[in-house]
Amino acid sequence: MSRPHIAQYKELLKSYTHYVENAPSTITASSSPIPTIVLIIDESTQRNYMGLYGYPLPTTPRLDILKENGNLVAFNNVIAPHSHTNLVLEKLLTFHNYENAQTPWYKQQNLMDILKLAGYTIHWLSNQEVVSIYGNAPEVISTRADITRFSTISDSYSAGKAYDEILLSLLQQVRQNEQILSPNTEAQSPQPSKNFYLFHLMGTHLGYDGRYPKSFETFNIDTLKQYNLHTLTPYPHTSSTILNPRQLQ
């Protein structure tokens, strides 16, 4: 059986590993006093449905509290470079951008190795597939992490069946293993360890009703009608076409 996505993964991995390990040392990263950095890639999340950005329903209560307390900055004038995962993460996690598009992403430096230069241990925790039929930029870049963990070893058709909270148990396992391997690291060293954690979520991919447990079911069809959110045109606009019960669900 032909599996071109696996061949693509192997070729990209070979090309990128060769580039990173042989690239001239033109980039340096100064030491950072921040002990822990966390990056959460929450795929397929639409800001138009987030209370944080003005959606009429309180869909982001915890983020709202963080913002009110001054612990969260909501960026308003940001535009994604693409609408698909692979093309976005080619640019999000490397120096690849619109201005230097003639140079492939796998011939440019990446966030993982830059943070290594700054003294961080890199952890990549993912609820997505190990190899993807949709493109393998994030999967290849994940190999540059010091510690990589996937919630399941699955293909693109079965990935993401587990809720994203499974990554919290992966994090706990990783931290427990680190304590077993080096229980007195910080006590013996004047420089405490520094860690970068990247959580790659499934986000709101697939059927929304499969992305959260029933105990989290807060809103229903009547809620959407009450807030005039039951038409075909997405918020903040409305249309004369009313969604049927199945569509509303």
Rank of each mutant, 00 (worst) to 15 (best):
P245I: 03
Y16C: 06
Y49E: 01
L111Y: 05
L201D: 01
Y227L: 00
H96L: 02
K225S: 02
A162C: 04
V20I: 15
L89M: 10
H96F: 13
L115E: 08
Q128P: 05
L12A: 05
V20G: 05
I6G: 07
T204C: 00
K10V: 10
G70E: 08
S169I: 05
T218R: 14
N100Y: 03
E43N: 14
T26F: 12
Y53E: 01
W105F: 03
W124G: 01
T17K: 15
L125G: 10
E165D: 08
T28G: 14
L66G: 01
I122V: 13
L232T: 02
P56Q: 00
T59N: 02
T152R: 15
D113I: 03
E139F: 00
Q176F: 02
I122W: 02
K10S: 10
H200K: 04
F219Q: 08
S15D: 14
S158Q: 09
I122M: 12
Y53G: 00
V73I: 15
F216K: 12
H84I: 08
D164T: 03
F150T: 04
L181K: 13
S193I: 07
P24M: 10
S169T: 08
N195M: 02
Y163R: 01
N127M: 09
H96A: 12
P33I: 05
L171R: 04
W124P: 01
A187E: 14
S32T: 13
Q128C: 12
Y16F: 14
P61Y: 07
S158L: 08
I242E: 13
R246M: 07
Y227D: 00
I180G: 00
E165W: 00
R246Q: 12
I6R: 10
Q172W: 00
L66H: 04
W124F: 15
I27N: 08
F216S: 13
S151K: 09
H200Q: 06
Y163S: 00
V20A: 15
E11K: 13
S239T: 13
A7L: 07
P190G: 09
P81V: 11
H200C: 07
F95L: 11
V130C: 14
Q188T: 07
L168E: 06
L198A: 09
L93P: 05
S142D: 06
N76P: 06
S156P: 03
N228D: 12
R144V: 03
T121P: 01
W105H: 06
L170Q: 10
I221N: 12
Q46C: 06
N220C: 11
P24G: 09
G119Q: 04
P138T: 08
L167K: 11
Y235E: 05
L72F: 12
K67G: 06
K14W: 10
L92I: 08
P81M: 04
A101F: 02
K10N: 13
P213Y: 08
R62S: 06
I6W: 02
P58Y: 07
E165P: 00
K116I: 01
P192V: 04
N48W: 04
F95D: 14
A29Y: 03
G210R: 11
N244H: 12
N71Y: 14
S83N: 10
T60V: 02
M112Y: 10
T218I: 15
N100S: 09
T121E: 15
P61H: 05
N71C: 10
T85H: 03
Q173T: 12
N244R: 08
T36A: 08
E11S: 13
P61K: 07
H84D: 06
M202I: 09
T28H: 11
